[in-house]
Computed example of a mutant assay.
Amino acid sequence: MRFNLRANMLDEFFRARIGPKVTAPLWVAHQLENTANVYLPRYRRTAERKPISRIGFELAALAAQWRCLPFHYFRYELYRTGVDLAAAATYVPDTVFYSRLLPAVNRSVLLLDDKIACKRILGDAGVPQPLLLMTGEQGSWFDRTGRPVPADSPTALDSALGGIAEVVIKPARHTSGGAGVLVLANEGGELLQQDGAPFSLTAYGEKWGGWLIEAFVRQHDELAAFNPHSLNTFRVITHLHPVHGPRVLYCLFKSSTGTDAVDNACNGGLYVRVDTATGAVDGSAHTTALTRYTRHPVSGLAFADQKISTIRRVVEVAERAAVHFPRTPVIGWDIAVDHDAEALIVEGNSSPSLMNLQRTHGGLAHTLGRSLITDHRRS
């Protein structure tokens, strides 16, 4: 017993303390690439920017404050004339968030980041989510009850899928940004891609490893009005307090900017702030390429005119889900709303996108940052 406890503590130590140091060179290279390809070109195109002497002074001040290279100065366009140093100081650098605070606070993340494990936990707790139909691992297929499904039997596959005509397959682990997520047609156990080409579960498993298939969500008309091509979802950030329980900190609405089936920002999608009390949508949406939209590029809907009528249900289901992961207090939930206005947990993320939050809500040093620092000290 003592050995197992020590082994678990050692595993958490390496994940929270050693892992970020080992991956630091890759993280710096990633930020340098983004700065060179996206952020500096935007800086050069911006007319209303501070004098170079002022920018240099603020870069030095932020580097000293956060003890890291201040890539975030360009990431969040803090060089603009309307942003003073006090406001710039409230923006948390990604290095601090992902390498220092979040790994020290969020533990047992595999229960959340393994999509199959997460769905099982939430399913046992009765939290609404898209219906799980099948899982697969290393060439073995299973129905939702865990019974094997013969790989050479379309009839057995169709039975496992419940005869549902449209399904979604996604990798179970180690992906982000909607990578590997596909909408498939099921024609009597024959799976087809959107272009009509046959789909191979075996080839998919060889590429992505473990996978799961769930029923396609027919989204609420209110959300489909933004973009009918993608499943438009909400990213809801919850913080689980050990005494006061879960609370929602932030909510974003996400949508594809084209005809892609996924709405992820990493895939070119947009994101816009939603007021969790009223459901009012902010007037300006953003992308990771620093593009701003006041209207949805597909439907033309003006964001400032929209209000989400189901926002209370979105908030409530996020809070219901958060309590089942007590060792992972900060979670980014992706939540869909189906045709019947029921909010469904699509998945949870132990590493929610800081850029999306700070682009829509401003600097988070005094809100989410403070909560993480408090949690870190408490642990």
Rank of each mutant, 00 (worst) to 15 (best):
residue 332 G to W: 12
residue 72 H to D: 08
residue 63 A to I: 09
residue 174 H to S: 02
residue 19 G to F: 11
residue 104 A to R: 14
residue 134 M to H: 01
residue 271 Y to F: 15
residue 114 D to C: 07
residue 283 G to C: 05
residue 183 V to G: 04
residue 93 P to E: 08
residue 47 A to N: 03
residue 160 A to R: 12
residue 38 V to T: 15
residue 27 W to Q: 10
residue 132 L to S: 08
residue 306 Q to N: 03
residue 264 N to R: 11
residue 141 W to P: 00
residue 172 A to D: 00
residue 365 A to V: 12
residue 192 L to H: 07
residue 322 A to K: 14
residue 248 V to W: 12
residue 111 L to Q: 13
residue 313 R to H: 02
residue 123 G to T: 08
residue 203 A to C: 06
residue 9 M to C: 11
residue 62 L to I: 09
residue 296 H to M: 03
residue 90 T to G: 02
residue 198 P to C: 06
residue 276 T to F: 00
residue 273 R to A: 15
residue 133 L to C: 07
residue 163 G to E: 01
residue 179 A to D: 12
residue 70 P to C: 00
residue 169 I to V: 15
residue 370 R to M: 11
residue 81 T to V: 14
residue 17 R to F: 03
residue 353 S to Q: 13
residue 9 M to L: 15
residue 21 K to N: 06
residue 138 Q to L: 08
residue 202 T to P: 00
residue 144 R to H: 13
residue 127 V to D: 08
residue 274 V to N: 06
residue 29 A to C: 06
residue 90 T to S: 14
residue 170 K to L: 01
residue 330 V to R: 00
residue 146 G to D: 10
residue 139 G to F: 10
residue 50 K to R: 15
residue 10 L to M: 08
residue 199 F to M: 03
residue 222 E to M: 10
residue 213 I to V: 14
residue 69 L to Y: 10
residue 193 Q to G: 10
residue 364 L to F: 03
residue 285 A to Q: 06
residue 78 L to C: 09
residue 105 V to C: 05
residue 250 Y to Q: 13
residue 56 G to P: 04
residue 93 P to A: 06
residue 249 L to W: 04
residue 60 A to G: 13
residue 55 I to A: 12
residue 201 L to D: 02
residue 23 T to F: 12
residue 362 G to M: 07
